[in-house]
Amino acid sequence: MNDEAACVLFDSGHRACGGCAAAMAARLILDAAGKDTIVVSSTGCMEVFSTPYPETAWGVPWIHSLFENNSAVASGVVASLKKQGRKEKVIALGGDGATFDIGMLCLSGAFERGHDFTYICYDNEAYMNTGIQRSGATPYDASTTTSPAGSCSFGNSRPKKDLPMILAAHGAPYVATASIAYPPDFKKKVEKAVNTPGPCYIQVHAPCCTGWGFEGEKTVAIGKLAIETGLWVNYEMENGVVTKVKKVVRKPVDDYLVGQKRFRHLFKPKRNDAEIAKIQALADRNAVKFGIDITLKK
């Protein structure tokens, strides 16, 4: 893996916020996938900050059509390459809004048909490009501009949609979750996905300093805390079976929540014990479901 190459495949000069996890993700993806990759982006932050005409940050062939159709466009690209006997890898890239919500029909169709491509969702847990509105990936109790915390609201009233499991149920040969906080792990998963025939899915946790309310220098630290509290689990599934899970010595969810403005209402004016207990229960459930806890020897 060549870091120099990554700089060229996703170039400097893009207009992402300082400390942007999506920009990090784009670099890591291309570093892992290499230059013989065609990227199909959906509308969203990554598309907008990387391609204001006449500038492009992409050093690989890249196409953007609409918000919700990157899987369908990718289907066409894959078919086109197959017909021409070409060997480039195809990666569809979308944010969580494009992936979980508006592009779900195209995504489901493409996975059911079994096209040979990798879909990577950079999950920053809300519609960031339009100004931080809730999506199907927004976690429980996060305050967004369309799920604001208020006198009779604790923020988003629903937990995240379990999209990796839904796509695994489509018969996807490889499904993985990852985090930009663990670059080598993420890159390994991208490499594995692009080299696995059939539709593969990676959902990479991409903390958004602007949308979540923390300083850009903390992007990686926040990502690590999501893993360490059990609110985000890094795992791999092969042919519908969980084959690998990142284990942790778990920290209380407070450690993750307290550093983010989107959860500030849970701590001010005083700690909301009842709501934080519900979030802790979500982490505990993840821990049981995936067996992430490392038991320390006494």
Binding site: I38, V40, I63, S65, L66, E68, N69, S71, A72, V73, A74, S75, G76, V77, A79, S80, L81, K83, Q84, L105, C106, S108, G109, A110, E112, R113
Partner: peptide
């Protein structure tokens, strides 16, 4: 490609055309 909607039909055509077919 037996797409799941007309929306995807034309989207797939768009991608395939851009890839040179």
């Amino acid at each position: 490609i037996t797409v799941e909607s007309e929306f995807s039909a034309l989207s797939a055509c768009l991608g395939a055309s851009a890839a040179g077919s």
